[in-house]
Every structure is written in structure tokens, then in C-alpha cells.
Amino acid sequence: MAELKKEDLLKAYRTMREIRDFEERLHKEFATGKIPGFVHLYAGEEAVATGVCMHLNDEDRVASTHRGHGHCIAKGVDILGMMAEIYGKKTGSCGGKGGSMHIADLDKGMLGANGIVGAGGPLACGAALAAKFKGKGGVAVVFFGDGASNQGTILESMNLANIWNLPVIFLAENNGYAESTGVKYNVPTPNIADRAAGFNMPGVTVNGNDFFAVYEAAGEAIKRAREGGGPTLLECKTNRFYGHFEGDAMTYKAPGEVKQQREECDSLKIFAAKATASGLVTAAELEAIDKEVAALIDEAVEKAVAAPNPTEADLLTDVYVSY
């Protein structure tokens, strides 16, 4: 925690709170039937996106997953635009043409949430290759789950990143479930990070519910990548508080599993306890952020609901740059 100043801690907490409240609110709104399509919530995993993206700037690229809202928020994508996008509105980040699984903001270095599991690995390698040509120390991060850890694209990309010495961080978000299938069934090694040895790169496993553990490990990996030291596989073990998608009854989880995780492994609670214990921030300051974020999410939903739909003219545009 030594290098984190008060404003850093407040910023990290705000980001994590934004992600949590965004997702909790989506869970409620989805149940009313007003939100179209497939929605995959990131609640429970906030410390991962936040701990990593705190080290990144707009020139650094992130390739995300179908569970991408947290990565978008942590990378600085506008929350009002995100909410409108999830509602399918013209004012959304992508004009209502992408939806929850495809939110992107290239100006912020967010290469997009992605509906194809594992597809971000090659894209991040390309972003890192571009950064290497630019020569300004840019890095790329690919977030992927324990499910995607078994996709050929991820394994091929780890190989490619190592032989080309690319500034990529392979960020495995191990929440224990590939949709409904447990990681113990899908992954033969104790840790996903163990696979790093096969590609001759550092592999690290940390508690993904602890912002400070993620922040420290990601900081080392990103620093190494910026300095030309090549890729790292960083595994963050975490939990998702909701189903694979909204509407998933989670019949595969043990009775009380999520309840226990919320009590013992809640990344916001862990953060608040450690941050206040450090004496750098007070509980009152965190509560003030809670109120501001609650108001922001209220505003996002109100504006998204009120926003216009895209029109028939929008159907045919944006397929090509030139026709």
C-alpha cells in the first residue's frame, strides 16, 4: 500500500463502487424485463479490473470479455453511455448496435467487450505489437476467464506474445465457473498461472478479491512489459455473485456459496477495511463516494430509459468506412 496515496485509494474505491452498483442495479432492472438481450454481471470481481486498470492510461489497450462492464468502467468508459447502450438506445456508447457484450471505447483504449470466449487474446497481441512499433512503452491487457483459459486462441496468444516478446498481460479472472462447469473439471493444474511455465513466462496467482494484491502483482507485470520484459500470466482468483447470465438460477453452486462469498470475500468490504486501517482514508469519505455513485447510477438509468431508440436509418450505417 506504500505507493498508494489518498487520492489513489479514493479513486480505486469509487471505481469498485461504480462497478458494483452498476451491476447490482442491472440485476434489478433486468428482472423487470426492460433490458434486452444477454447480460453477464461482473459483481464480485471488481478488485481485478480496478487493480489492473489503475496502472493503465488511455494509450494502453484492454481486450475484454462477455463479462465486460467492470473492465469498461475501470478503463474510463462513460457510465451514462454504457447504461444507454445496455438499454439499446441511440445515445449508447455504440449507438445501440453493440449492447452489453460489445461495449467499446477506442479513445479510452477499450478494444471491446467480446461475445466470443477467448477472442481477446489475439487482439491484445496485435495491440501490443502496435504499441511495440510505436515505442512509447504502451501495453495491452487481455482479460479472460477460467473457461477461456482452455481456448486455443488464448494458448496460441501466450505463445505468440512470448516469441515476439510483446508487452501483454494475460489476466486470468478465475471465478471458478466456465458458465456452469467448475474449474476443477476444466483445468488440470492447481492454478491457471501454472501454464505460464509452458511458455517460459512469469506466472503469478493472487487473491483477486483483494485490490491491493491485484494492484501490486499487476503493477509488477505491467512495469516489466513497459520496460521490454515481455508478457506475464497473472491469475486472479475471485468470485462472481450472480449467474453466468441474468436469469441463471445458479443450480450448480452449493447452497449458501454466494452468501458466504459475499460475507467473507467481498472485494469492497476487504478494500474498505484495509484502506481505513491504513489511516489514509476515513469511513466517512467512502460513504460520501457511495452516495455520489448511487446518484450517478440513478441518473444513468433515468437517462437510458428516457433516451430515444435508434431509427431505421441507423440499421444500414457503420458497416464500412467507405462503400
Partner: peptide, 23 residues
């Protein structure tokens, strides 16, 4: 001029990613 491993998904995708990032 960059030789690639026989990993079409990763290197084709890397070209796509690099294109989206200014190359």
C-alpha cells in the same frame, strides 16, 4: 516482415488487433 508460428487464429487476430490500434 514478420514470420509467425503456425497459429493462424493468433496471428490473424493479432493483425486485426494491430489494425484497430493504428497499424
Amino acid at each position: 516482415i514478420i514470420d509467425t508460428p503456425i497459429s493462424e487464429s493468433s496471428y490473424l487476430g493479432a493483425a486485426v488487433g494491430a489494425a484497430a490500434c493504428g497499424m
